[in-house]
Amino acid sequence: MIKLLLADDQALVRGALAALLNLEPDLEVVAEVGRGDEVLAAVERANPDVALLDVEMPGMDGIAAAAQLHTAHPNVRILMVTTFGRPGYLRRAIDAGASGFVVKDTPARELADAVRRVHLGLRVVDPALATETLTAGTSPLTTREREVLAAASHGATAAAIAKSLHLSEGTVRNHLSSAIGKTGSRTRAEAAHTAERLGWL
């Protein structure tokens, strides 16, 4: 029996996934959480073999939760299951330790098969997303540029970003200018939108 943990902030989606996966004779959902920052504690309580994580969750996003889980419990396989099939998400998830990445509209039988393959130590990636990721290339943004652009995407001023990241306003402006250039944008709002669309934020 392959034991599963489901992490998704949408209770309806989480419940539907659990119901579908529990229909499989060799799969059992042993834990469900609705926040990324609840994943590690749930894994320690339920000891699953595979964790299915959504990307966008409150508390901590699924990619950060995957990195935390992979460091603490490298034996637990991670399968990202998300609505948002953005190329940058795939690359970041694999870098964080995920073994697979599928979108939520994957048919139930294929999702169950993906779980089994990840459990065996294989890598499973949605083929269309894999192609798109190769085409899009890697994110050109540095970690600091990503942090500054993410803060800017929520409407924060340069002064507020500087204060929260312990940088000077000039440094923040330099990072924003660099991010705007690297995304081929004209404004920081456009740069943030482009980076979000490609999954770089």
Rank of each mutant, 00 (worst) to 15 (best):
L12F: 14
V115T: 05
D95A: 15
H193A: 15
V81F: 05
L6E: 04
G184Y: 10
E56V: 12
I180P: 04
A31H: 01
P48E: 08
W200E: 07
L198T: 00
E145K: 03
P74C: 02
V76N: 05
A11Y: 00
H70A: 15
A162Y: 12
L198V: 01
D37Q: 01
Y89E: 08
M1T: 14
S164W: 00
P140S: 03
R86M: 11
D26H: 13
I94W: 00
L12E: 13
N22H: 04
F101K: 06
L165G: 06
V33C: 11
L17Q: 12
E38W: 00
D54L: 01
L134T: 06
T138P: 12
A67R: 15
R35F: 06
L79D: 09
R14E: 10
G34Q: 04
A136V: 12
P140D: 03
T131C: 02
A158N: 11
G170L: 08
G184E: 10
N174Y: 09
R186A: 14
M60F: 01
P58W: 02
A16Q: 12
V115S: 07
D54G: 03
S153W: 01
L149I: 09
T106N: 01
E24T: 04
A136P: 03
T187D: 08
A156F: 13
T157P: 00
V50F: 09
R197S: 15
D49K: 04
L122N: 12
L40A: 12
G88L: 06
R144Q: 14
V124P: 13
E169H: 00
E32D: 12
V103S: 07
R92C: 03
V55Y: 00
T142M: 10
G121H: 07
R91M: 09
T138I: 07
E196G: 00
R117D: 08
A66R: 04
V172L: 06
H193E: 15
V39L: 08
T142N: 09
H193F: 10
V118Y: 09
L69Q: 09
D49E: 13
A72K: 13
A67I: 01
G121K: 06
L167E: 05
G181A: 14
R86A: 15
L129P: 04
H166N: 14
I63W: 10
